[in-house]
Design a protein around this nucleic acid. Sequence first.
DNA 1: AGTCGCTTTGACCAATTGGTAAAAACCACG
DNA 2: CGTGGTTTTTACCAATTGGTCAAAGCGACT
Lengths: 216, 216
Amino acid sequence: MPRAAATKTPTRIQRQKTRAILDAALDVFSQHGFRGATLDQIADAAGLSKPNLLYYFESKEAIHRTLLNRLLDTWLDPLRQLDPDGEPLREIRAYMLRKLEMSRDYPRESRLFANEMLQGAPRISDEINGQLKALVDEKAKVIRGWMQAGRLAVADPYHLIFSIWATTQHYADFEVQVRGILGAAEDGHFHDAAQFLTQLYTSGLTPPEGRTGGPS
Amino acid sequence: MPRAAATKTPTRIQRQKTRAILDAALDVFSQHGFRGATLDQIADAAGLSKPNLLYYFESKEAIHRTLLNRLLDTWLDPLRQLDPDGEPLREIRAYMLRKLEMSRDYPRESRLFANEMLQGAPRISDEINGQLKALVDEKAKVIRGWMQAGRLAVADPYHLIFSIWATTQHYADFEVQVRGILGAAEDGHFHDAAQFLTQLYTSGLTPPEGRTGGPS
DNA sequence: AGTCGCTTTGACCAATTGGTAAAAACCACG
DNA sequence: CGTGGTTTTTACCAATTGGTCAAAGCGACT
């Protein structure tokens, strides 16, 4: 029984079922939050009986914890890729677009995260005050460096990052609202969003006049 | 018994208790969502017994419905105030600031709304496709008018509105995250946010060159 | 074919959940 | 100070919830 910390080699069935469970759980948790989700719902969605589900995961919380842990890694990746040696404006825009793509490709993950935040991040606050804060601090420093070098309009780098998070995740988290107002679109309006946000951040961050640092 | 549609004059006690219940319910629902909230939690927070609570409201859903109805009204107010006859850039900025103030002063309402969206808006989709859409359509047309008159940089007005919603509500909905990264501040960093967003939208929406419409 | 370990099931539990019924307590008003 | 309506409590309920347990089923390998 895999219930006590991975027994050596996970069987093919084990990997397969675990994946099905996590996928189903992502559906349910991202929609209803931790408290609002039930094991029966998850088991149903995964095509298993509840006891069978609990054969693969110790508890409801264990499933949720697993999801959150996996999430944070991929979630922070776009920011990690922000290159201190790149061209500032291009880097910011590319970061924003990567986040937007994440919202498009992983909306459930975005909503899972949002749900956790709304609840006061009871099971993820450590990571927020740890990993996440550290990474944001680091990148904020990079951005501030660019600004001080005159290669980017001066603005608070933290709030800049927040605004990128907010605007991009909005299309996943508030998808229903967007669809309600703009109607259903094949790509969920991500193309238009990308264009709008590119423009907003381009004109919002282009430095006023002469470039200090760049080549010619 | 007030349980069957308001009996004429609501007693002082009735008004008082109903308010306490709604306030407590706002706390609980905004944190845990509809499914995740329990009547016991709400009753506790309101300082009542569960049966006593159910003396004032028919059901859990009735409480939630009441909250959502009241919410939508105040929620759309900032947008309603957007004045077609005002100075475009000032109007947009003022709207953004009003929304930001709402996030600061009514964070629970913001989270209640967010929770409902995350769940797919099962009990509010009518209003979204009705009232909300109508208002947004109307104001988007106003904004597009400003853009076509050269009084505002050209951009998709819908996505502009979405970005304002996203950036401002972020400070309420993701408050834990903001606090985790920036530390606790008296005003929850709303001053800095206001400054950043003002700058972003000002430079992002200022029309490129000659003003067409305005007085000299 | 047998068997050993992995997987699944059915029956079950205690706690919690939304909600009810009726009696008791309270309160304003004549 | 009593009385009629309002408010609150006590005692319940059936359904759902997260979770357990032992028995049954299954599958790969000898």
